[in-house]
Amino acid sequence: MTGPPDLIRAAGCVLWRRAPGPGGLEVCLVHRPKYDDWSHPKGKLKQGESPLAAAVREVGEETGHHCVPGPPLPTAHYRTGGRPKVVHYWAAEATHGHFTPNREVDRIRWLPPAEARARLTQLRDRELLDALLTTLHRVDGA
């Protein structure tokens, strides 16, 4: 990967699971008390770590859930603290796990897509949710 020397590299997942009822899908959002926001699980890459490995690790650390990564989703590019940031995302199906609140993430919510979309703080996270739904729709062939 190339980029400016001050580039922040991160990765995450739009975590989903099958659910009973209309739509049959729930999305996991994380609440970060430091920013008082709702977003998808994500975090910075460790030295020598691939973006996909970082995304799966961050899901586990932030949500307590294991996941099976699926198709890539759009990459987010933005500035934070005056520095450029790139975040690679994947769709990921939750398999099992249990959330334990921590300093970085104090709450998670499993929500139907429309409720998740309304709760997400950033527009770019809403766009990722839309991309997930489009991707899953294509995969299911519906």
Results as ranks from 00 to 15, higher is better:
E104Y: 08
A10R: 09
R83P: 02
T63A: 06
W38N: 01
A10L: 07
L25F: 13
V105Q: 00
R32Y: 07
D106W: 01
P112C: 01
G23D: 12
D106P: 06
P84I: 00
G64S: 05
R83E: 11
P71R: 12
R109A: 15
A10V: 08
D36R: 15
V59Q: 00
A76P: 02
E104N: 10
V87A: 12
L25D: 03
G48P: 01
P84F: 03
T75Q: 14
R17T: 04
D106A: 15
V87P: 01
G60H: 10
R57E: 11
P41M: 05
A92N: 05
V59S: 02
G82D: 08
P101W: 02
E62V: 08
A53Y: 00
G48Y: 04
R103W: 10
L29Q: 04
V59I: 05
G82L: 02
G23T: 06
G82S: 06
D37N: 13
T63S: 11
E61Q: 15
L111N: 08
G21E: 10
P51A: 03
V30P: 08
R57S: 12
P41F: 04
L45K: 04
V59N: 02
A11R: 01
H77L: 10
T95M: 14
Y78M: 09
Q47M: 09
A11C: 11
W110F: 10
N102E: 10
L111P: 02
W16V: 00
P72W: 08
T63P: 07
G24Q: 12
R107N: 09
W16N: 02
E58T: 10
